[in-house]
Simulated assay, not measured.
Amino acid sequence: MALALLAGACRLAPPAMPGKDVAAHVEEEATGRGLRAAEAQAQEAVRKAREAEVAATAALQAAESAADDDAATHQQDGERYAQAIAEARAGAPGCTLEVERLIALRRQLAEYVSEPERDAAIAGLEPCRKAALKLRRQHHEKAQRDLPRGAAKDAVAAALRDEGLADPWVPVQSGALPTPGRKASSSQADALAKLRSDATAAAQAVDAAEADHERAQQGVAASDARQVQLDEADDAREQAWRGEMQRSGNRYLAVAGAAGAVAWSGSASASSSSPAATRSRPASWRSRPGPSARRRAGTRARAAWSASRWPCRSPSWASSRPTTGCAATPWASGSRRPAPA
């Protein structure tokens, strides 16, 4: 029985300590590295998209500012242009304009491209040009009287050409500048529209990049959470193993204690029944009579006491020899004594 208990105790050995779920950890770590790399790429994409948005916005703002400046300038030019036309129309009928103002109005209107109002205003000043030509010729001839006749004539002609009075103003020639105060050209409008489209696309690209970055961050956070769950599962298995270790130890001690008690009881019984154990007992133990001897001694003591009281009585176990002085008595052979008379 002791051997059976010991064998059972050996079978109560605790399980081996559980290790980490290495495969799951390795897989999740690889997944986390990939997600972090994707997050870094998404963050870089956000940075580039923001830079592109800033550049597109700056270009659009510069173009719009230039357009606004051009619009303001065009508005001012348009106002001056309209005033010049109105002044030319008002001074043409009576040639009431001074020569210097007449020359200035014609030069101002001549810078712009041909258009009906401008051409009509210049053509209306042609009679005034002829009158101003006579006056300015006389003025320049007086100024050049000290020069030789030929030189003075050339100088007067050059001065009249510089003032724009030498050649007829009709037919009206077209200038280079666009008519001020009119709607911006289609090319400028198209350029602004393209810049606005680029800025809008850049802003949308930033939104998309930020959304991708946010999803990448969520993926990294989910991977970190799974790593924590794996660690918690490892800790739970280890705690369960430690509890099982304690329970197994308690069972092992209980079984081992029972086996030890059985083994001690068996060895004690064997020791008491062996001759060596008998020999090892004290001398007082070896001299003590057993139960049967004690019973026989008691019987003999009672018989001696009875014989001392009734010496002529012969019990059944007494000797068959007659007792001295009791041969004549009838109860010497064991018969009952007669009752007194």
Rank of each mutant, 00 (worst) to 15 (best):
V172Y: 07
L177T: 07
A152N: 03
A189C: 03
E141G: 02
A152L: 05
A191P: 05
Q138S: 09
T179Y: 02
E141N: 03
A176I: 08
K183I: 04
A152E: 05
S174Q: 08
E163F: 00
P171H: 06
A155H: 03
A152S: 15
A191E: 15
D167K: 12
A143G: 01
A176M: 03
G150W: 03
T179R: 13
L195C: 09
K134G: 09
D154E: 15
H140Q: 09
L192E: 13
G175E: 03
D162T: 11
Q138N: 11
R196D: 12
L160I: 05
R149W: 04
L135A: 14
A176S: 12
K142W: 00
S197W: 04
L195N: 07
K142G: 08
P171Y: 07
D146T: 05
Q173K: 14
D198A: 15
G150R: 11
G175V: 07
R182E: 14
V172A: 11
A191T: 14
P168N: 09
E163K: 04
T179F: 01
S185D: 15
A152W: 00
K194E: 14
Q188D: 15
A151D: 10
A158T: 07
A159R: 08
A176F: 04
H140D: 07
D190A: 15
S174K: 10
A157D: 09
A166M: 04
A191H: 13
S186K: 15
D190Q: 14
Q138A: 13
K183D: 13
